[in-house]
Design a binder for these strands. Structure first.
Lengths: 242, 242
DNA sequence: GGTGCGATTATGTCTATACATATCGCCCTT
DNA sequence: AAGGGCGATATGTATAGACATAATCGCACC
């Protein structure tokens, strides 16, 4: 057990007092000079701790006025981007993808608005332990992602490949519910009108649309989990170039 | 237009090169000494910029080895905590809450596990322009939130009040779909079996459970929108104590 | 009593320096 | 040739000091 650096200790001490409610929103934090005396260190060290707290949104700093505990932000949740293959495997089930359709459209249909033609249409179902779990209809811009033409998605899903092989800058998810239509119901082997969780995802690189996908999950078989973001502590490994 | 501080400019310059793809994941960033020369500043200034990038998860820093661009994290979405009243009002509809049930339980039922008794049970529906939109069943720990006993929720929803008046440290949402059961269907005025989006939220303060709520949204009438998180730029105002 | 301006305060930014620490790679020993 | 020790490198942490900037407080003046 190694002692953390001083600025981290100051940071943690203040964070603790805020989280515990001892310092309520609006409370004024002692000025840097006071903390400097309390911890017996230089002002830069205190400043580093307070700046980090400000970056994290826990406190707000105002010149001359001082540093104040922010109102609980309470507005951000963090949701993992669903990678179905990985998640299903992680919960101990066998994952499979079955491709139902693959064709190139030379004009962009309305469902894929925002993608420049030609576009690739992929339709398939995700299965867990052999049981259909979700249906997806996907459009991919072949101008934005030319490499996808060479990929074989008859058994592995295009979503994971895209997320890992094509750079993107923005994504938007719309999450809702819908009754299964005839096509989806048939593909999933359920009655028409069955409740489904729907996830619609758009991905862009700058202003250029990359892909648009609409997924239907059988109700009760899949959930999205979102947690309040206390800290972004993801420690990804650096990895080698390529 | 005022010039941003130097460390912010260095930060932005490097972020730009990473986001644009010029520096791919795994690329080694010039060492601090090189950036120091490039920008004609002290190492501490470069260090501040790089440390911030590391905190933000864009780069990883290793002693002796250098600083490297992280793999695209691509795993975080930001979801707004739904505040129904505000959202419905924002889209130009009239919002209303109708309380269906309110009672105090002196033993914690299974549905509210994690909350210490006594617990308050609240059931009601959210309406937009007079039409039922969502049903919610909520449990609140009266030991964790004693103040709620004095609140009148016959017309305004408990969710907003709780989020704004009780401090909490953690929240978890489970988002799925379900067919409406008899009770929910009757309350919403739809046929049993209608598709619904379900949102289940648990909130804690430390280890103490505060509230648990299960909401059913009529399919097609409500969506959650999640965007990729480019930056956590929320600038909340400090507010005065109280 | 209201108003404007200067003094004060607290944070923001930056420098130059120092020492600590982890690690890579080379050289020397065995 | 295998392995250990050691120096070079790059980051990590911290200090003391300096000047800049924003905002508030209080006093002087009208």
């Amino acid at each position: 057990m190694k002692a953390p650096p001083l600025h981290a200790r100051i940071h943690a001490a203040i964070e603790g007092r805020i989280m515990s409610g001892e310092w309520a929103p609006g409370h004024r934090i002692p000025p840097e000079s006071a903390l400097m005396d309390e911890y017996g260190c230089a002002r830069m060290t205190v400043n580093k701790a307070l700046s980090a707290l400000a970056d994290a949104g826990l406190i707000e700093r105002r010149r001359r006025a001082g540093s104040f505990v922010c109102r609980p932000r309470a507005r951000n949740l963090v949701l993992d981007v669903p990678d179905l293959a990985a998640e299903i495997t992680a919960r101990g089930q066998a994952y499979a993808f079955r491709l139902l359709d693959r064709e190139v459209w030379h004009r962009t249909p309305a469902e894929a608005s925002g993608l420049t033609a030609p576009v690739l249409r992929l339709e398939g179902i995700h299965c867990a332990d052999g049981q259909p779990l979700a249906h997806e209809e996907r459009w991919v811009s072949l101008t934005a992602v030319p490499g996808i033409a060479a990929q074989d998605f008859t058994t592995s899903p295009p979503g994971s490949w895209l997320l890992h092989h094509t750079p993107w800058t923005e994504a938007e998810h719309r999450i809702g519910a819908a009754a299964a239509g005839a096509g989806v119901a048939a593909a999933l082997g359920v009655a028409e009108g069955a409740a489904c969780l729907t996830v619609e995802r758009h991905t862009w690189r700058g202003a250029e649309g990359i892909t648009r996908v609409c997924q239907h999950f059988l109700a009760g078989h899949y959930e999205l989990v979102a947690r309040f973001a206390p800290r972004q502590g993801g420690s990804t490994r650096p990895g080698e170039a390529g």
